[in-house]
Nucleic acid binder design. Structure first.
Lengths: 199, 199
DNA sequence: CTTATCTTGGAATGACTATTCCAAGTTAGG
DNA sequence: CCTAACTTGGAATAGTCATTCCAAGATAAG
């Protein structure tokens, strides 16, 4: 008997992700969302419940659609060192040029901003960090299996360090950092963990 | 003939720094500042000019009073590797415990938030990065002079990498990161750059 | 003490904030 | 067709935002 939704909630969430990603959730008003999505306040509140829940939903969707696939690809890539290098090369390229240049990463940005919000937001931050660090650990273990890991390297600590480098790349790219400088820094860290059997 | 100010502008700015640092500039209203500093809107606007200029002034003061002294101490410390290790140990401690625990770094937070503001804000971000990276470079050169640098390490890239690690420590500490995990990551990066002649 | 010049408190402003509510419209099963 | 259950547009609300303005008070030089 009921009526059915006249719009696609997931497509709407994608547009909200873009708004929060580029401008930040705090500086984006409901009016901006209404204008960008084309639907009305009533439908927004009926579907998502309010701005706080909308922010949590958008952040979760960003993690699942933007971050998770890349992390999974890194974890599944058996090459080890080249996989990590490729991850960072694509990261720097995506952060400094193209459609989302200088937007940074929504999850990274939320660290500085959305900590005081819903507890679900902090949960997404934790899940993001676990996924990123686990992917780095898997890649480092593949590097170890290939004999490319320097003796004495703590895999867990190195995985955390590489994850931290990714956060910093996301952050500094927003301020206009040079891609070459970011890449050189990341390569230096990676070189410190590995032996140079390639090239 | 003129009247003189009935309050200390620098002390006021210190309180504003704390507000912006803990809660963020976007989520802090003029009313909050009035309440925290005790002075009136009129005096605020007459002295600082508005919220945007107030944010730029607070950010600049944070850089000069909080960041710069630590960077200068690192650059002047001739010990090399131990100086870098001590810098990060104190950083992690300050970010995870004590008076400003879990506040992160105002400059780091501003990367994710205040890029769209006054151009002076971006200037402070650049000055901060230059000062941090230069201090790291000086410390790495001291390490090189002491024979502690692994052969083939690019000092400039390593300095950038250590600066990036500091940003990430600041960021992740806001989300409740474990001090031990942050320290282990930083030590792993530093170990990758250096030889273990100590202890 | 007078006076010019600044500071200060408080009220007032208008534009925006998120959120709620309701009547009108739309859908699909009976 | 009819009706129950939902969606939707738009108006309305109460609060907060940064900012401005003005009269009253304070200060120090002459």
């Amino acid at each position: 008997m009921p009526d059915v939704k006249h719009f696609d909630p997931e497509a709407t969430l994608d547009r909200v992700v873009d708004l929060f990603w580029e401008r930040g959730a705090d500086t984006t008003g409901i009016a901006d969302i209404v204008k960008a999505t084309g639907l009305s306040r009533s439908s927004l509140y009926a579907t998502f419940g309010g701005k706080a829940q909308l922010q949590a939903a958008a952040l979760g969707r960003y993690l699942e659609r933007r971050s998770r696939p890349v992390f999974d690809a890194l974890a599944a890539d058996g090459r080890g060192v080249p996989a990590i290098a490729a991850f960072f090369e694509r990261l720097v390229a995506a952060r400094c040029s193209g459609e989302h240049a200088r937007w940074g990463c929504l999850v990274t940005n939320t660290h500085a901003t959305g900590i005081g919000g819903l507890p679900e937001i902090r949960d997404v931050l934790d899940r993001h960090h676990d996924a990123l660090r686990s992917a780095m650990r898997a890649a480092l273990e593949a590097a170890h299996a290939a004999g490319r890991l320097r003796p004495g390297v703590d895999v867990e600590a190195a995985a955390e360090a590489l994850a931290l480098q990714a956060y910093a790349v996301n952050l500094r790219s927003r301020a206009g950092a040079e891609p070459a400088a970011l890449l050189a820094a990341v390569r230096a860290v990676l070189n410190g963990f590995t032996t140079t059997e390639e090239r």
